[in-house]
């Protein structure tokens, strides 16, 4: 990068950006500080890699001999995901609509937005713990927990989608003397349908992933089987469960991509 020496103002094409340097230094300082808090020693790492190699060795070959248990758990997870998505999406429609600030007065939208924020803040597994204590072990607790998660995600995005719509069509339909219901059906729904399908399918995927986990706290599905297999060091069965989980989740992703394509 040699510039002609005749130019009087030799400008550096890449000037030093001090704010970003300070951020980098702060990040580095934080990294050193935070790493000092967790005890990482070379012996622990070496022992860990030994354990890891041992575990991987015991995972191969995966043990599919208890396939009926595996299938039962997977089916229950799938059912939890489907029912939670169905109820959750249905509930999200009115809640999301109430939370849209261009459709509703503040005294309606603020409570709805608070409800959504509460639903979003907690990980589904934490919500599942609460529901297990409330309604007992089993699929019901898992379904309720994932309904909460679905409302937190879909109602929020749905509200945002409604807030972004063009009001011209709403006014046009309203001007034709349509009732409130018809205004919704003919001016709001067509504008948000494809986006709504998009994040609904995303949430179905997400529910499928989480429905395989809520079992860890006793809320039904394959998670319980996975957790107990871990605790009994049945690593070959763990491997079998993980492989089938990944297969199911990928199949779910393919399905949702197809659905999104259909409703483009």
């Amino acid at each position: 990068m040699t510039m002609p020496s005749t130019s009087h103002a030799k400008r550096n094409p890449f000037p030093v950006n001090w704010p970003s340097r300070i951020i980098w230094v702060a990040l580095l300082a934080y990294l050193v500080y935070a790493l000092s808090l967790i005890d990482i020693s070379s012996e622990r790492m070496i022992a860990g890699f030994g354990h890891g190699a041992d575990m991987l060795g015991r995972m191969v070959p995966p043990d599919f001999s208890r396939w009926s248990l595996l299938l039962e758990g997977l089916l229950e997870s799938l059912e939890i995901a489907i029912l939670a998505s169905a109820v959750g999406i249905t509930l999200s429609l009115p809640i999301g609509f109430f939370a849209a600030r261009n459709m509703m007065p503040p005294w309606v939208s603020w409570p709805a937005r608070t409800l959504i924020a509460v639903c979003r803040s907690f990980h589904p597994v934490i919500v599942a713990i609460i529901f297990v204590k409330a309604v007992g072990f089993g699929a019901l607790a898992g379904i309720l927990a994932l309904i909460v998660a679905s409302v937190g995600f879909i109602a929020k995005l749905f509200a945002e989608a409604i807030e972004e719509i063009s009001l011209k069509q709403v006014e046009a339909v309203r001007a034709s003397g349509a009732s409130f219901g018809n205004v919704i059906i003919f001016s709001v729904v067509p504008q948000v349908l494809s986006r709504f399908v998009g994040f609904s399918t995303y949430q179905v995927d997400s529910n499928l992933r989480n429905s395989t986990m809520v079992g860890i706290v006793g809320a039904g599905g394959i998670g319980g089987t996975l957790f107990s297999a871990f605790q009994r060091f049945d690593y070959d069965f763990v491997a079998a469960i993980l492989i089938s989980l990944i297969a199911v989740i990928m199949a779910g992703e393919y399905f949702s991509t197809w659905v999104k394509g259909v409703f483009k």
Partner: peptide, 30 residues
């Protein structure tokens, strides 16, 4: 395709509702 998606969704919900093990007393008690 649209009808097919709808059909699959409805079928999945119906089958899941029938098959899932929910103890009715627990639900009433909730």
């Amino acid at each position: 395709s649209r009808w097919l998606v709808l059909l699959i969704v409805v079928a999945a919900i119906v089958v899941s509702t029938r098959h899932v093990q929910i103890i009715p007393e627990f639900l009433a008690d909730a």
